[in-house]
Nucleic acid binder design. Structure first.
Length: 275
DNA sequence: CCGTAACCCTGCGTGC
DNA sequence: TGCACGCAGGGTTACG
């Protein structure tokens, strides 16, 4: 479940080793993974392009190419973008292989095939529907406490689904939403507009804390996630509530509960996180 | 505006 | 042992 910290870790692990290399050739084993343009167009367009750097927007990985193009990758649930020697075994579910000018490859692997690749002009990233209306970067300077507070006042939804809304804040997924709400001691079903100033401050700080901690620990490897070099992260060991149903809350020893909220399973401490 | 659910997909756990 | 089934989950889309 790659969220902002995992995507950022992939970006940071790959950028120094692939910048400056040329994508010599692409092999597409599953054409639906290429969302834009067609698989054929992708293959012909990407060949010969030099990698100039990388970016991240929300959960999207952006690989910038010389000539004004960008390769954009969304890993969704089980996607992996890994740098491997061309001699390394091609594992099951390898859908796209980019051959690089140093004999290495960038491989897109995705067990559930939910992830997508896009190749489009760097000036047209807004053409990707998920990016067009994407909300603020939670670790960027536009995400201020004042902005967060003001926005929450007008929202009539529950706080947990709101944190997952990518058009509100970019990059938070189920793991970090549950962790942030636990740190802030806020029940996931509280209505967003009901949070008082102290709640807002705690949640604002908690969002940034859990994301920064996730990055510092190189991501949460709950199941499939690995960085650009195929290495697992360490943040799964730091989680307080996510995936810990029926385990004691680290604060108060009350057993963690799990409940579907807004269609997503939510993990919380019924004692620390009151209504 | 908000909530709910379907969709996409494979692997895994459960029950028979 | 193996089959059928349900669940998991991010983000988009459809619908009430």
């Amino acid at each position: 479940m790659p969220e902002l910290p995992e995507v950022e870790t992939v970006k940071r692990s790959l950028e120094p080793i692939i910048t400056g290399l040329i994508i010599e050739k692409a092999v597409v084993n599953m054409s639906k993974i290429i969302k834009e343009p067609s698989a054929e167009g992708f293959i012909s367009l990407i060949a010969g392009k030099k990698i100039t750097g990388m970016d991240r927007r929300g959960k999207y990985i952006i690989i910038n190419l010389k000539g004004g193009y960008s390769l954009v990758i969304h890993l969704r649930m089980t996607g992996q973008l890994v740098y491997k020697d061309a001699n390394q075994e091609i594992v099951k579910h390898t859908h796209v292989i980019l051959s690089l000018s140093n004999g290495q490859e960038l491989r897109y692997i995705d067990q559930r095939q939910f992830g997508r690749l896009y190749l489009l002009p760097s000036s047209s990233l807004q053409n990707i529907s998920g990016i067009e209306f994407m909300g603020v970067e939670p670790l960027g300077e536009d995400f201020t406490k004042e902005y967060f507070k003001k926005e929450l006042r007008n929202k009539r939804t529950k706080i947990k689904p709101l944190l997952l809304d990518q058009t509100f804040i970019a990059g938070i997924g189920n793991i970090y939403a549950d962790e942030a709400l636990h740190q802030a001691r806020i029940h996931p079903e509280r209505s967003a507009s009901s949070l008082n100033a102290r709640d807002v401050t705690r949640l604002y700080n908690a969002i940034q804390d859990v994301l920064k901690q996730g990055i510092a620990n190189r991501g949460t490897s709950f199941k499939d996630y690995v960085d650009g070099e195929g290495k697992k992260g360490d943040n799964q060991n730091m989680l307080k509530v996510y995936g810990r149903e029926k385990e004691p809350c680290p604060n108060c020893k009350t057993l963690i509960e799990r409940k579907k909220i807004g269609g997503r399973s939510s993990h919380y401490c019924p004692r620390c996180q009151k209504y």
